[in-house]
Write a protein that binds this DNA or RNA. Structure first.
Lengths: 235, 235
DNA sequence: TGCATTTTATTTGTCGACAAGATTTCGACG
DNA sequence: CGTCGAAATCTTGTCGACAAATAAAATGCA
């Protein structure tokens, strides 16, 4: 089996166990290390992380609350599958959250928020320059989360974060094969425009830019899915 | 203390324990039986429900994920306080969800959805006729949740449900004193109008009606809060 | 050989217990 | 009398174990 018992984790602080397991399983799910539909055995994970089943279970309950895993009663827990039937609903919600969080940021942002946003944009640009696709995905997420946090609406921020993470899974599924072909530089330009509009507190412009940005991302994902479909038909 | 050890619950099915505790603590939090800020002692709850601490803890983790309780590391778990500083954000998100769920329902609803929505509306009207304020709050929530479910966007539905439940807490806090003075019948008329607009698939009308409906509810809550403030100042 | 049924085995849901961390109580000292 | 510090108490976080429920394997039968 692929049990890789990490030997270097004897020192753990009390109370950090469940959180660490949560973050680990969360990242492994989002990064497709644990592919959708894969069963998560509690005992197996407990042995892998040299920890009891209790923190494992707590992490799984949390992940189930976020919809990342599905706990089947009295049966195994599995990584949630990507529901392609509800993909339109996903795009719809994602686009809406892009818009409202950017608008809210334009309304409420402080100079400290702008500093954080610009810092994220720099990191994103660096990832683009390095051609590091997975890092680009994460940094793009962080950039927009920073904008959402500047909007100071935790309801929007939480849903938006969840949607961006869900998108991270989808991109992981499709982005790799066609990465070299696409130039991600337009995203940098769009980000800069969004930053300027937020700072100028131009709500209408923010709404339009966010909508365009979202539509472009949605179209790109849809295109990748369609291309993937064609490839499968060709086989 | 007010420990009321329920004597009539010896028969429990395996796997239902955690869910039952979750639903119980959830309802008690939303109904203000557990007021905001109240600490939730795991051992105390375990004794009260004649159950181990493990399912209690699982329920608390789930509730913490929904923001209903706050788990302080190595300290007690408390019922989340109502954050009046973010009340504007709450109203903002609530209004938006009213709009988008009603619009989505207009787009996607089936005849079975309409039956369910009308059934909820009948129950709501019955609660209004009976003058049962807490039941009205719950039935109003169920009515709009049914509309949201007809929209078939689980992201919207989940956030909307959470917001409506949060509103249930706020209404529980303010609605009782001033209930007799207000006539809730306009809500019935507005609901009927929304039903008609959804069935006619008139997106623009749905959006307008939902916005008006939300604005009216928001204004009513704000009025109750303002009245409450005045009363406190008068003392 | 194929299908139904019993038996085994694995995995979860729950339990009681123990230790770390925090809070409170109590006592010493200025 | 008030303040600081130490002991006691309490609560949580984690652990190992057991039983119910399911899944898998083995057995019997047509």
């Amino acid at each position: 089996m692929s049990d890789t018992p990490d030997p270097a984790l004897p020192e753990r602080r009390r109370g950090s166990g469940a959180r660490m397991v949560y973050e680990l399983l969360r990242d492994e799910s989002l990064d497709m290390v644990l592919p959708p539909g894969a069963p998560i055995d509690e005992i197996q994970q407990a042995e892998r992380l040299s920890i009891s089943r209790t923190p494992i279970r707590e992490a799984l309950v949390r992940l189930a609350g976020e919809g990342l895993v599905t706990m089947l009663p009295n049966r195994s827990t599995v990584v949630s599958t990507i529901d392609f039937a509800n993909l339109n609903a996903f795009f719809d919600a994602l686009t809406l959250m892009y818009r409202v969080t950017t608008r809210a940021a334009a309304e409420c942002h402080t100079s400290a928020d702008m500093d954080r946003i610009r810092a994220r944009q720099r990191v994103f640009a660096a990832a683009v320059a390095a051609g590091d696709a997975p890092r680009m995905i994460v940094c793009n997420r962080d950039f927009h989360v920073a904008i959402a946090e500047a909007g100071r609406n935790p309801y929007y921020t939480q849903l938006f974060t969840r949607l961006l993470d869900e998108g991270r899974r989808i991109l992981r599924l499709y982005y790799y094969p066609s990465f070299e072909a696409r130039l991600p530089h337009p995203y940098i330009v769009e980000h800069e425009a969004i930053i300027a509009a937020v700072e100028a507190r131009d709500l209408a412009l923010c709404d339009r830019l966010a909508r365009d940005h979202a539509d472009q991302i949605v179209r790109q994902i849809q295109g990748m899915i369609a291309q993937d479909r064609r490839q499968h038909i060709d086989l």
